[in-house]
Design a protein around this nucleic acid. Structure first.
Lengths: 352, 352
DNA sequence: AATATATTCGTGTACGTTAACGGAAGGTGT
DNA sequence: ACACCTTCCGTTAACGTACACGAATATATT
C-alpha cells in the first residue's frame, strides 16, 4: 500500500489558482451568498477545468447536519414473518449510512388494527422528520397521512404496495399485476386445459385487499388471453386463523375440488397445511414469499412454486432512495422488483 | 468556537473512559505495538461495551494509504457479450469505493487465446497490487498464476467459476452442479417420460469445458434420481461460429431428433437461430444468461427458459469482497449466486 | 464628511482518525 | 556512575471540507 499521489485537486488548490481563500471557494461550491459575480465566475471556471469532485468523506466529516428518516411498516406478527425481511433491509441500509450523518427510526403498526397505524402516523408527524419510508397497507389512512406529509414538506418513499398519485419520491416493490400474470404462466405448466383453478385471498382487513386483487387480475388476464378453457374460481377468507381457513376450504373443496390453488399472499403455508392434514396430494399449489414455513412445504412438495420479490431489498432500497433524494440526487421513481421463482431446487440459493 | 459534542462515541470517548490518550486507543484499534497487555485489555473491553464502530470517513481522510486492486476477466467478444455484466459490476463497485482510497485496474484476456491470459497475469504481478479479482477460465494457467500470487502475498477472489484448494479469500459465482440440476427440474415440466434430451456444450478451448461439465453432471443427476426414463444425448461443439454449429446440429438432429435441448452456456441463442432457420418448433430449449440476443429468442418463444446467475453482482461483490478482506473485515468464503429463472413473463424485471 | 449599512472576503476551529515524534520510566552493560 | 536501550504512552499536525466570526472594502444615508 503506497502513499497517496500528490493531490493537486481540492478546495485548497482551487483557492490558490483563483487567488482567493478557501472560504470563498467554499461559498461558491455550496452556492452560498457573499461572493461577487466576477469572483464566482472565475472560481467556477477553475472548478470545471480541474473537474473538481468534492471529497465526500471530508464533507460528511465536517458537516454537522443530521438527516432523520422515519420508517413505518407492519410489525412482525406471529401469523406471518414477512416483514422481518424488509426490516432487515432497512436496518442494513441504516447502518451503512450512519456514518454519513443519517438516523433511521423504525415505527411499527399492527396489520389487524388500523388504530395502531394512525397513532404511529401522528407520532411521526410530531417528530418533524426529514423523510419518510412507508408501507401503505391501509389505503385510506395512508392517503390521509401522506397528504399531511406533503403539507409539512416531508418527502416519502412507498414500498411493498403502490398508491396512485401521491407525489411520492419513489415506489419500490412488486408490479402486482405482472406478478399475478407470471403465476398464471407457471400454472399452465402444472395443469392442462379444461381443468379448474382456485384463487384464494386471505386477509383480515378488507383494506388490504386491493393489494391482492391486482395480483388476481393479472392472474386472470393471463388465462383469458390464451383461451385455455381453464375455469377460475375464487374465495375470499377474511380471517387469518387456521380454523376459519380450514372451514372455508373444506366447503369449497367439497363443492368443486380444484386442480390448482393460487394463494395471493404469503399465507400459502396455511393452505399447504390444510392439504397435508387432509391428504390432498393431487392439487398443485402456488403462493408467495420466502418464509420458513412456506419453504418447509416447498421442500415436501406440497407447494410447487413460490413467487418472491426481494422484500429485504425493498427495505434497503427504500431507505437508500429517500436518502438519495434528500441529498438532491435523482431517484428512479418506480423501481419494480424482479419476480423471482422459487422451487425445491433453487430455494437454498435464494437471497431475500 | 464550538465545543466538541459531549456524547461522542469516538476514539476520544474511549480514551477518556480508559484514562489514556487517543494515541494509545488508536494503537489498540489498529493493532499496533507499544501498548501494555493490561492497558490493551481495558481499552478493548471499553470498545466492546460501547460497540464502537470507527468512522470510515475520518479514517480514510486521515489515512494516506491507497489500496490497489487488479481485476482480470475475459474481454467482451463479439461472440458473446456476457462479460459486459461482470465488468459493469466491477466498475460500479470501483466508483463506489473510489472515495475510500481504492483504485481498481481492469485487465482483459481473450477466451480464445491462452497467451493473452498469461501475458496479463505477468503484467499484473509486476505492478505489485494489494489484491486481485480473477475469473479463472483457463484452469492450469490460473493455478500457476495464483500460486505466484500466494508467494507474493497477494490475496485474491475468484468469480464465475471455482477452483479447488487455492486458498482464495472467496469464491463468488454459481454452484454449477446445482444450476444444471435446476435446469433438469425445469425440463421435467416441459417434456414427458420416455422423451429425448440433448445436452449441448459449446466452447472452443477445451480448458473451459470443466466449467460446463459440472452443469451437465447436475443435469444428468437430476434425471437419474427420478428414473424418468428420459434418454440424454450429448454433443460437444468445439467451434463457436454459427456454421460449425449448424453443421453439427443438422447431423445430430437427422440421426435422432430430441424433444428438448439444454445448452450449458450463454451461446444458446445460436441454437435458437438454428431452430428458427430450420423451422424447428416442437423442440423445447433451455440455456443460460440474460443477453440481448437470448432475450430476443425468449420473447419469440424459441427459448423456453433462461437460467441466470447475476453476473453483474458477481463483479460487484467480487471487488467488494477483496476490498473488505484488505480492510481486515471477515468475508464469506463461498458466495453462491441465486439461480434465477427467466421466462417470457418476467424477463423485463430481471436485474443482472 | 461622518456615519451607518451591505457586500465581499479571509481566518480559525472543528469533524474523527492516522501516524510521526518525542518524553518518561525503568532496565542493561560497562 | 554514565550512556544507551526498551517499553509504554501522550502530543500534535495533518487529511479536505463546513461554517461561524469578523475584517476590509464599497455603497448608501444623513
Amino acid at each position: 500500500m503506497k502513499k497517496r499521489a500528490e493531490n493537486t485537486t481540492g478546495i485548497r488548490e482551487i483557492a490558490k489558482r483563483a487567488n482567493v481563500s478557501i472560504g470563498t471557494v467554499d461559498r461558491v461550491i455550496n452556492n452560498r451568498p457573499g461572493v461577487s459575480a466576477k469572483t464566482k465566475e472565475t472560481i467556477q471556471k477553475i472548478i470545471e477545468e480541474l473537474d473538481y469532485q468534492p471529497n465526500i468523506m471530508a464533507r460528511m466529516l465536517a458537516s454537522k447536519k443530521v438527516i432523520r428518516i422515519a420508517a413505518l411498516i407492519p410489525s412482525v406478527s406471529n401469523e406471518t414473518g414477512y416483514w422481518n425481511a424488509p426490516l432487515k433491509g432497512i436496518n442494513e441500509a441504516a447502518s451503512e449510512i450512519r456514518n454519513f450523518g443519517v438516523v433511521v427510526d423504525n415505527y411499527f403498526f399492527d396489520q389487524n388494527a388500523k388504530q395502531t397505524f394512525t397513532d404511529q402516523a401522528d407520532n411521526i408527524l410530531k417528530q418533524n422528520y426529514d423523510g419518510l419510508l412507508l408501507a401503505p397497507m391501509f389505503e385510506n389512512e395512508s392517503i390521509a397521512f401522506l397528504s399531511r406529509c406533503r403539507q409539512n414538506h416531508i418527502p416519502f418513499v412507498l414500498i411493498n404496495s403502490d398508491l396512485a398519485d401521491q407525489a411520492n419520491v419513489a415506489y419500490i416493490g412488486p408490479d402486482l399485476f405482472q406478478s399475478g400474470y407470471l403465476a398464471a404462466h407457471l400454472s399452465k405448466y402444472l395443469i392442462s386445459a379444461s381443468q379448474t383453478v382456485l384463487v384464494v385471498n386471505i386477509s383480515r382487513e378488507i383494506d388490504l385487499h386491493h393489494h391482492l386483487l391486482k395480483k388476481e387480475e393479472g392472474f386472470r388476464t393471463s388465462f383469458e388471453k390464451e383461451h385455455t378453457g381453464v375455469a377460475i374460481d375464487k374465495v375470499d377468507i377474511n380471517e387469518t386463523d387456521y380454523d376459519s381457513l380450514q372451514k372455508t376450504l373444506k366447503r369449497v373443496f367439497k363443492k368443486n375440488k380444484p386442480d390448482l390453488v393460487f394463494v395471493t399472499n404469503s399465507r400459502v403455508s396455511s393452505v399447504a397445511r390444510f392439504f397435508e392434514e387432509n391428504k390432498i396430494q393431487d392439487v398443485k399449489l402456488i403462493g408467495y414469499d420466502f418464509l420458513e414455513e412456506n419453504i418447509e412445504y416447498l421442500k415436501k412438495g406440497t407447494i410447487d412454486f413460490l413467487i418472491c420479490q426481494k422484500p429485504q431489498e425493498q427495505g434497503y432500497k427504500g431507505v437508500m432512495s429517500i436518502y438519495q433524494h434528500l441529498l438532491q440526487a435523482p431517484v428512479e421513481s418506480v423501481q419494480y422488483m424482479p419476480i423471482d421463482i422459487i422451487t425445491k431446487e433453487n430455494y437454498s440459493y435464494y437471497k431475500n
